[in-house]
Simulated scan of single mutants.
Amino acid sequence: MVRDDSTPPGPLDRWYEQAGVRTGVRRMFHEDAERGKVFFPAALVPYTAHEAVRDLPAERLRELTVRHLYQFLLSTTHLETRVVNAAAEPVANGRAGLDLPAGLRLDAFKVYCDEGYHALYSLDLADQVAAVTGIAVPGWDYGGFVERLRETGRELLPGAPQLAELLQAVVFETLITAVLNEVPADGTVAGPVRDLLRDHARDEGRHHRFFALFFKELWVRLGPADRARTARALPALIRAALTWDLGPVHASLRLAGLDEDTARQVVADTYGAGPGDRRLNEMARATLRLYATVGVFELPGAREHFAAHGLGDGSDAGHEERV
């Protein structure tokens, strides 16, 4: 689609010149060049500070940080393709039940291509790290997490599974992901890891803007009843997206030599019952502000409903936390 002079610039207008899948290079490990580097900073792995973990042999601690990198990479391969692309495809193909501008549909295909590429290079990097370190890539498929998201959508928006998928993608693509910002700036981390996460962050910045525009287009097309039930669903969708799958953490701790009871205790002590309200609001700050721009919080009872879930309107969130 060619934009006329009256069409505001879009976040993906220069996709052919800027997207990683169009211009990027394959990030490759060269073992000699990366000697002395870590694969993931221990400071960003919260359970390594636990008293039951911190005194493990250095090699076991190193394995935990590598598997934490695998967690991030594998969750990318699954969630980008099974959550984000599950929403991008019907938008792109005009199957979302919405009369959307042609340019937005073309942009949805660009997102679809990007997310597939993110999945590819994340798995590729995990395999390279495994070859260099000898630490196997676990078979974590995040199926339980994906199904929990879907079940949450079915419960909150009965009879509207596609609307739930669209809203979940908006949440995922507008949340703040500290790892993408912090790791590339850490000179102690192996270069290919830093470069790949920097590549990913560039694309995700454009995706954030795309999904913000998409949500605004979606919102104006919802009738009053659908807006009301969407507003009631949004807080729980945010919580579901930010209540992470702790199965891989538990499995990694067991592989490091902790017994079952100790591994369970470390997970419980580190992550508690889920994200606290402060962390929730920090991670969802941009998402909440997006909702505010379209008037979600002006609907009767919406602000109170968000507050009941521990969420504000994005105006009082602090600085982002590590995840």
Rank of each mutant, 00 (worst) to 15 (best):
E147W: 05
E147T: 13
E59C: 01
V179S: 15
V189S: 10
L123T: 14
A126G: 02
V66P: 08
A88W: 00
E80N: 12
G116N: 13
P138Y: 10
A87E: 00
A86M: 04
P101D: 01
D124V: 05
Y121V: 15
Q162V: 03
V84A: 09
T133P: 12
Y117W: 11
Y121H: 14
R95P: 02
I135H: 04
L73A: 12
V83W: 04
L106H: 14
T177F: 11
V91M: 04
G103L: 11
L73V: 04
Q168K: 13
F172L: 09
P138T: 04
T65M: 10
V84M: 06
T133G: 11
N93K: 14
G143Q: 13
A136T: 10
D99S: 14
L64P: 11
A131Q: 06
A136R: 08
V129Q: 08
G139T: 09
V66S: 06
Q128R: 12
D186G: 09
E115P: 08
R150Q: 11
D114Y: 00
D99V: 12
D186A: 15
R148S: 10
L167E: 05
C113H: 14
L120D: 10
L149G: 10
P158C: 06
A87C: 09
P90D: 01
V66R: 03
V129G: 04
L69N: 08
A88N: 02
A102Y: 01
V146C: 08
L167I: 01
N85L: 00
V83D: 00
E182H: 15
V179W: 06
T81L: 07
R148C: 00
D114Q: 10
A164T: 06
W140R: 04
P101M: 03
R82V: 08
V171L: 05
G139S: 12
V111Y: 00
G97N: 06
D186H: 14
R105Q: 14
R154K: 12
A185N: 09
L79I: 15
A190H: 11
Y112S: 14
D107A: 05
G143P: 13
D127G: 12
E89N: 01
A96F: 02
G97V: 08
V146F: 10
V183I: 15
T65C: 15
V179R: 05
P184D: 05
T77R: 11
S122Y: 03
A160F: 01
E155K: 15
L157R: 00
A92D: 03
D114E: 12
R148F: 05
P101I: 01
A131T: 07
V170T: 10
L157C: 00
E173N: 03
S122K: 10
